[in-house]
């Protein structure tokens, strides 16, 4: 316990406390002004917006992929399973570069969504893919198939089984994965470097706003927006974990 707390303090708590202290250097009023400034707020609200979209898509697609990986049999499954984690291993700027090459103005696909909000969503989807998949997968593996068989023998169709048996069991895992994906999307930087236009009020996300504030030597403002993102992240994780506990209690 002592070791864990000391480690947590050095790696997480003290840096975050220092950041928070920096954010409030000029008092609460300045902190609030920093966040509600036009450009800052535009960036933050855009970030929340795309992060929510990304989280929702992840919830559906991540569960689907996990399902396919656990329940279906197909050649190369092991490879696909390994690929899921690649976005974690890939330096995020490489992910951005790849997306720009593929879906940019000269992309072979013929779809140009670079420098649009769709481009941001795409990059975020790539880097957040593993969260829901990896959260749902073990639960699916452990899920007792006899429950489904029992339901089927009682005359339940596949849809009913999915809705009444599988979904309630998976729900806590999906929510947990979503929380992580949302938090990651809020703060993502590297993969967006080449795919956003970085234009204030248009497609500048919060992490880029923070970066530009640091580059312009406005550390307090940068810290304020960072702390706001942090609080948002924390709130999302707390709410979702409460929801997770609630659903897992009421599932059975």
């Amino acid at each position: 316990m002592g070791v864990a707390v000391l480690y947590m303090s050095l790696i997480v708590l003290i840096p975050l406390a220092a950041l928070t202290a920096g954010a409030f250097e000029g008092g609460v009023g300045e902190f609030w002004e920093a966040i509600t400034g036009d450009a800052a707020w535009a960036a933050v609200s855009l970030t929340i917006q795309v992060s929510l979209i990304v989280t929702l898509i992840n919830a559906v697609m991540g569960t689907l992929i996990a399902w396919v990986l656990v329940r279906d049999r197909f050649p190369g499954k092991g490879i696909v399973n390994g690929l899921i984690d690649l976005p974690f291993a890939l330096p995020t700027i490489v992910a951005g570069l790849t997306l720009l090459a593929l879906y940019g103005p000269r992309g072979p696909v013929g779809v140009n969504i670079a420098f649009t909000k769709a481009g941001i969503v795409l990059a975020l989807l790539l880097v957040t893919l593993p969260f829901v998949v990896r959260a749902v997968q073990p639960v699916l593996l452990e899920l007792d198939r006899e429950m489904e068989q029992a339901a089927a023998s009682l005359g339940a169709g596949p849809l009913t089984i999915f809705r009444r048996i599988i979904l309630p069991n998976l729900f806590p895992a999906v929510i947990g994965g979503c929380g992580l994906a949302f938090s990651r999307a809020l703060g993502e930087f590297g993969s967006l470097v080449l795919i956003t236009g970085n234009i204030p009020f248009q497609d500048q996300v919060a992490s880029f706003y923070i970066y530009s504030q640091i580059e312009s030597d406005n550390r307090q403002e940068a810290a304020a927006v960072s702390v706001f993102l942090l609080v948002l992240s924390l709130a999302a994780l707390l709410i979702l974990s409460a929801l997770e506990r609630w659903t897992s209690r009421h599932a059975r």
Binding site: L100, F115, V193, L194, G197, N198, I199, Y211, S212
Partner: peptide, 13 residues
């Protein structure tokens, strides 16, 4: 239409 974060990124874009 696009303001990358630095000169290098601009050239890449």
């Amino acid at each position: 239409p696009v303001q990358p974060k630095g000169a290098r990124e601009s050239l890449q874009v």
